[in-house]
């Protein structure tokens, strides 16, 4: 937005982040919250990452150069956040290594917030990933990036409507210009601290035979792991024979997913 005249007033306003955001780069000590950043390739995910952490991360698009994940940090409202940049993927069906890395982190890494960056000019295509992320986490924010480019193309995105349909907060942003970053930070902060809740949109299983099988497995899972979240999704993955999920169920790892993640230090630091 072009409101340069109010810049000075804004800086002193309580809503402003000017004083509250401290970019920590890779200097991370003990952190309070972990935020995962997911999104399709070429959606400006890295720009969002860089805007929040002050890092200059460059991600090459040369195929095969799998960047496992990059990490950086920032401090907001005197709370330290670790931001984990997941590899850009089109889906979480774990057909590729990248998708596997992203999905396993969201599921087993138990981030406090997962931010899904989507491209405003290609919303239809990008929402696939957002919907899939919403199947496996309750704490997600959708960041509709490149809103400036969309505007230039005559495209307007209804953030409120999208938020209602997806069941999670939606932030319209143009990360390159810094637009929307402030609101994104506030939403992350609120969600991490439990001040906001969301009811992510879940896809129904509408094939009768599958429905039966899923219901049966969900019942079994509920008995074995009374507090396990995303039972339906886990049941579906079990049915499809997803080896990582099968292993997690067999070992009991899946049962511990409902616990708030205790120490973020357990997530091994990798990337840069």
């Amino acid at each position: 937005m072009t409101t340069p005249t109010h810049a000075t007033t804004c800086e002193t306003c309580a809503v402003s982040s000017g004083s509250r955001l401290e970019r920590l780069g890779v200097k991370l000590g003990q952190v309070d919250f972990v935020v995962a950043l997911a999104g399709n390739p070429n959606t400006g995910k890295s720009t969002v990452f860089n805007a929040l952490t002050g890092l200059r991360q460059h991600t090459g698009n040369w195929p095969g150069k799998t960047i496992a994940r990059a990490e950086g940090g920032f401090s907001y409202n005197s709370k330290k956040f670790k931001l984990v940049d997941l590899p850009g993927t089109y889906s979480l069906l774990s057909a590729t290594e990248d998708e596997e890395v992203a999905r396993n982190f969201i599921l087993f890494g138990r981030p406090d917030v997962t931010v899904v960056v989507v491209d405003a000019t290609r919303l239809e295509r990008n929402l696939n990933l957002a919907l899939q992320v919403l199947q496996i986490t309750d704490k997600a924010i959708v960041c509709v990036n490149l809103i400036d480019e969309a505007r230039a193309h005559g495209v307007t995105v209804d953030g409120r409507g999208l938020s209602r349909d997806l069941g999670v907060p939606v932030v319209l942003a143009a990360a390159r210009q810094g637009e929307g970053i402030e609101q994104l930070l506030r939403e992350i902060d609120d969600m991490a601290n439990g001040r906001s809740t969301c009811r992510p949109h879940r896809l129904p299983v509408d094939i009768p035979t599958v429905r039966e099988s899923v219901d049966e497995l969900v019942k079994c899972l509920a008995e074995a792991y009374p507090n396990m979240p995303h039972r339906e999704w886990v049941a579906l993955r079990l049915l499809e024979g997803d080896s990582r999920i099968v292993q997690a169920v067999a070992s009991g790892e899946i049962g511990s997913l409902q616990q708030d993640h205790v120490a973020t230090g357990t997530i091994s630091a990798c990337g840069n």
Binding site: E124, L127, H153, G154, T156, D158, G161, L203
Partner: peptide
Amino acid sequence: ESARIASRNVDQQG
């Protein structure tokens, strides 16, 4: 589903 949600919330002018 994503097509449905997108078509509801995206408006293409011109």
